[in-house]
Design a binder for these strands. Structure first.
Lengths: 418, 418
DNA sequence: CACCACAATTAATGCTATGAACTAAGCTTT
DNA sequence: AAAGCTTAGTTCATAGCATTAATTGTGGTG
C-alpha cells in the first residue's frame, strides 16, 4: 500500500538476492540451473554471479560432466565470506555462538545469569564480550562478522532501537538494539526467542519445505512462532503468536498471567504438574526441577497420572486446533522441552485430539510433527537474522560501502576483463 | 523465497502501480505531490502519468493555485475508465452490483435463492445474467467491465479454478471460477464473503488507515477476516480466520460443527438464543426469525436475559482476546448483524471483557471498533477484488493487449508529441 | 583432426529512471 | 504593459539494467 518507487538498482539488488538465496538454499548449482530456477537469462546469471564471485561472496565448487559437452561449474556461497553470531538470552544463561555461512557452528561461549532479573547493561556486556570471545576462539577476523542476532524471551519492537519487553527478565522497554550498537559496529538484530527457534526449525528442522507453518512451543510457558509465506508473522507490534494466553477453558484455572482458563495453565509444564498435584490429593510429582518432575509423571503408571496426561493431550489438541483454524498452516511443528516430552509419547493421540477440535478441512491440510532441533537452536535461529538480511539484499550491504573504498581487487580475485 | 527475476518492465509496472494506488487512495494529487509521496523523480511521474492519461486511466481534475507560480494540475483516476462488478452469493439471495472506479454503485440486481442447497450451475447462470443486467441498467459497455468479483460464504482455494467448499450451500469442491470463466471473457475473482467484507471495511469503513486489523464477524455463524500489511491473510489453503470454531470452553456446549466448546456455540446468534432458552426453562425468546429474537432479547429487562447477555459479553471478550493475542492487530473491527447488535449496546463492556482475557500489551496496542458498513458491503468488497488487481499491476493488464491491436488513439486522447 | 554438444561469456539492443536544461503559466513589480 | 519572479511540468541526454544473438570455451566422438 505504501510501496515506494523501484529503480534499476533495486532491480539488480533483487536479482542478486534471488540468485544468492537459491544458491544458498539449494546447495551447489550450475549457472544453467540457476537460470532455469529464476527465469533469468544465462547472460544475466553469468554477469551477476561473476560480480558475486569477484566480491568473494560466491565461489566455484567443482564441476559436473554434461553428456558430451563442456562440464557445468557448480556454484556455492563461500562459507568463509563472512560469519554470523547468534546469541540466546535465556532466563538462566546467555549463549553466544559463531557460525560460518553454511551455518556450521565454529565457536561457543556461555555466561550464567545469576540474578532473577538481570541488569540489561550486564547482559549487553556479556553479549559484547561473547562476540569477541567467539571470534578469537575460532580465529576469525572480527570485521568478517556480518551481523549479530540476539534472541530474547519477550516481545521485541520492530524499531531501530529494538525495544524489548520481557516479563520473565523483568525488562520493561529496554532498547537492547541501541545499547548493543553503542558497543559494536557490527549490525545488530534482536528478535523473540520463539520466533528465532521457529526460523531455525523452518530452515533446518521439521519445517523444511513448508511455506506456511506454526511452530508450537511448550515449556514452562507456552508460545508459538507463525511463519507465513516463508517469513515470520509479526503483527502490528511484533507480539503476534502469544498462544499460551488464549482462553481454552472459559472461567477455568487461574494462569500466572492473572487471567482464567489460559492454555498455558493447562498444558504448560507448571500447569500440568499443578493439575497432577491437585488430582493426587496435594502430593506433587517426584523430581527436583520441573523437567525431571514432568519426566517422572510421564513414566508414572498410576491412574491419576494417566488421567492428568489424558486431559493434557486433550487440551493440547484443542490448542493446536485453534492454531490450525486461525492460521491454516500446512504444518504444525510441536516443540519446547515439555512439548517434545509429550509429543514423543503421545503424538498420535495429540493428532487425534486436534482432529476432534479442528475443522475437518484445515485439519486435513495440516500435518503435525515434532521439532527436530534441540533447544540450543535458539542461538542458531538468532544467527539466521543477519543471514536473512544478507540473502534479502543479495549481499550488497557490505560490499557496497567497501567497493568504493578498496579499489584494489581482493586477493584471489578473478580477472573479469582481459 | 521462491521469488523470481525482476526486469525493467517489472520496474515500470511497479512504479505505475505505486502511482496509480496513491492517486486512487489519496484523492486528486498533483504531479509534484506524487513525486514526493513516491520518491519518484518528477520526470518519471510526468512520463508515467502521461502514459496513463493517454490510456484514459487517469485524468486531470482541475487545478490549484500555487503562491505566485503556475497552478498545479490535479490528477485522479478516471471514474469511467472501467467498471467493477461485485456479487454476493448468500444463503438466501444473490446480489450483483456495478461500481465505477470511485466505488460508486451504479446498478444492482438481486436473485432469490429458493433451494437450501442451490445448484452451482443455477448460481452461475444468475451471476452471468446479473452481469449483463447491471451493465444494461446503467448503460455501460460490457467490454468496459474490468472484472467480476464474487463472494461466497465458504472457503475458496487460491487456484485458477477457484474451487469453493461451502457447507452452508452444500457445495463440496465446486470450481466456481472455472464455471464462470466458461460463460464470460471478463476476468473473474472469487473469494470468501467474510474476507471481502473485511476488505470493504478496511478501505471504506472502520478499518481505514490500519495496516494490521482483524474484522470479527458475528451472525448466525462466527468468522473473521485477518488483514496483515494491508492484504488479506489467507494461510496455506485460504481458510485462515476460522474464528468461530476455536475452542473457548473446553468440553463445553456442543457446536453445530460437532465439536464441544466452540466460540460460535456461545456467541453466535443461535448459540445465544439457545443459551437463553436453556436458562429460561426451555422457553425461547420471542420473535420469528433469529434476528428479531435477538433484538427482543436485547430489549428484554429480565434477570435471565441480563445473565445470558453478560455471559455473552464475557465469551465474546475472550474470543476477541484470542484474536488480539495471536494476531497482534492494531484494530479489531466487530461486525456481522449479531456483532453489531451486541456491540451497539455493550461495546464498552466488550472492551473490558477483552482486556480481562488478553495480554496487557497487545490489548493496549489494539483498538476495538464497530463495523461502519452494512451487510450489503459484501458485494462492494467483492468488487474490490478486481480493483486490487488493477492497482497492483498499475492498470497494464487491459491496455497491454489493447495497445498492440488498436494503434489508433482513443477519442479525446491528448497529443503527447507535437 | 574435424566435428559435435553443451557451457559460459561477450556484444549489441531496447527499456527504464534520472538529473539538468528548458518551457509553461500565473503573479508581482516597475 | 513589460519585465521579472516563482512554481509546475516537459524534454533530452545519460547511465544502468536484462535480454537476445553471436562468440568463445571445453569436453567427447567419429
Amino acid at each position: 500500500m505504501d510501496a515506494r518507487r523501484t529503480t534499476v538498482r533495486d532491480m539488480r539488488r533483487a536479482n542478486r538476492a534471488v540468485l544468492l538465496t537459491r544458491i544458498w538454499l539449494d546447495g551447489p548449482l550450475s549457472r544453467h540451473e540457476l537460470g532455469q530456477a529464476t527465469a533469468l537469462s544465462l547472460a544475466s546469471v553469468s554477469n551477476l554471479v561473476g560480480e558475486m564471485i569477484d566480491e568473494g561472496l560466491v565461489e566455484e565448487a567443482g564441476s559436473v560432466e554434461s553428456d558430451g559437452g563442456r562440464p557445468r561449474v557448480l556454484l556455492r556461497v563461500a562459507p568463509g565470506y563472512g560469519y554470523l553470531v547468534g546469541a540466546d538470552v535465556g532466563e538462566t544463561r546467555i549463549q553466544v555462538e559463531l557460525f560460518d555461512l553454511t551455518m556450521t557452528a565454529l565457536a561457543k561461549a556461555e555466561y550464567p545469569i545469576a540474578a532473577a532479573e538481570p541488569d540489561p547493561g550486564a547482559v549487553v556486556a556479556h553479549l559484547l564480550h561473547g562476540l569477541t570471545a567467539v571470534t578469537e576462539q575460532a580465529g576469525v577476523d572480527p570485521d568478517a562478522v556480518l551481523g549479530l542476532g540476539v534472541a530474547v524471551s519477550g516481545t521485541v519492537e520492530r524499531t531501530a532501537d529494538a525495544v524489548v519487553h520481557a516479563q520473565t527478565l523483568g525488562w520493561e522497554g529496554v532498547p537492547l538494539g541501541a545499547m548493543l550498537r553503542a558497543g559494536t559496529d557490527i549490525p545488530v538484530h534482536v528478535d523473540n526467542g520463539a520466533k528465532t527457534l521457529g526460523q531455525a526449525e523452518m530452515w533446518f528442522g521439521a519445517g523444511r519445505g513448508a511455506r506456511h507453518a506454526v511452530v508450537a512451543l511448550v515449556g514452562s510457558g507456552v508460545g508459538a512462532a507463525v511463519i507465513t509465506d516463508g517469513v515470520s508473522y509479526r503483527g502490528a507490534h511484533s507480539s503476534a503468536g502469544e498462544w499460551g494466553h488464549t482462553t481454552i477453558a472459559y472461567g477455568g484455572r487461574q494462569c500466572r498471567c492473572g487471567n482464567l482458563g489460559c492454555l498455558e495453565a493447562y498444558v504448560g509444564a507448571e500447569g500440568i504438574l499443578d493439575r497432577y498435584r491437585l488430582a493426587n490429593r496435594g502430593r506433587p510429582a517426584a523430581g527436583g526441577d520441573e523437567e525431571s518432575a514432568l519426566g517422572e509423571l510421564l513414566r508414572s503408571s498410576t491412574g491419576t497420572a494417566a488421567t492428568v496426561l489424558d486431559d493434557t493431550v486433550g487440551y493440547l489438541g484443542a490448542g493446536v486446533a485453534t492454531l490450525i483454524n486461525l492460521f491454516n498452516p500446512e504444518r504444525v511443528v510441536l516443540g519446547g522441552w515439555a512439548g517434545l516430552a509429550l509429543g514423543e509419547r503421545f503424538l498420535p493421540r495429540i493428532r487425534e485430539a486436534t482432529a476432534r477440535h479442528a475443522l475437518r478441512q484445515p485439519y486435513a491440510q495440516a500435518s503435525i510433527e515434532l521439532c527436530q532441533l534441540g533447544p540450543d537452536a535458539v542461538a542458531m535461529g538468532a544467527a539466521t537474522l543477519p543471514m536473512v538480511r544478507l540473502l534479502r539484499d543479495g549481499g550488497v550491504s557490505r560490499s557496497a560501502g567497501a567497493a568504493r573504498i578498496e579499489a584494489t581487487p581482493r586477493p584471489g580475485r578473478r580477472p573479469r576483463t582481459r
